[in-house]
């Protein structure tokens, strides 16, 4: 068959033929679900702040409780159903980070507890920590030089 398209032309043709995501609808879902998760976080923060705990303790407790909820929802096969609708709304909060650790832990147990569960746990979270920590070290170094 004679080539009708160059690769670039074909790519444009495919884009025209492929349905786009419903951006407005997806954003609305992300906004609402992300907003709700953060509001729950605010509730936890307000609760412990009202009991006179110091600010840093409160923020640690908030993270830990949200992570616990997310891991439970992941284990019960519910977090992926939320994510299907919510998209970034359930990916971007710390609960999404917890889901990205719990889901491979559950999935790859079949390949053993060390190289399966233990190692694959960090397929998504690993890069997040690598680049997050490294970036904070760079910022810290600049701060150190400036003071």
């Amino acid at each position: 068959m004679n080539q009708q398209f160059t690769k670039d032309e074909y790519s444009k043709f495919v884009d025209k033929k492929s349905p786009n995501s419903h951006l407005a609808k997806d954003m609305a879902w992300a906004f609402i679900v992300g907003g709700i998760i953060c509001t729950i976080g605010q509730g936890i923060m307000n609760f412990f702040t009202a009991r006179g705990l110091p600010k840093e303790t409160v923020s640690s407790i908030t993270s830990i409780l949200l992570i616990l909820i997310a891991v439970i929802l992941t284990a019960l096969d519910l977090y992926d159903s939320i994510g299907k609708r919510a998209g970034a709304g359930s990916v971007v909060p710390i609960t999404g980070f917890a889901n990205s650790i719990a889901s491979p832990a559950i999935e790859y147990k079949t390949e053993g507890y060390v190289m399966g569960l233990g190692a694959k746990m960090f397929t998504v979270a690993g890069p997040v920590l690598v680049y997050g920590i490294s970036a904070s070290i760079v910022v810290g170094f600049i701060y150190f030089l400036m003071h």
């Binding site: 997806d26 992941t74 284990a75 096969d77 977090y79 992926d80 939320i82 994510g83 299907k84 919510a86 998209g87 359930s90 990916v91 999404g96 889901n99 990205s100 719990a102 889901s103 491979p104 559950i106 999935e107 790859y108 998504v124």
Partner: peptide, 9 residues
């Protein structure tokens, strides 16, 4: 991805 990852198709 792992089945339980909350990603969007």
């Amino acid at each position: 991805f792992p089945l339980e990852l909350g990603n969007q198709r």
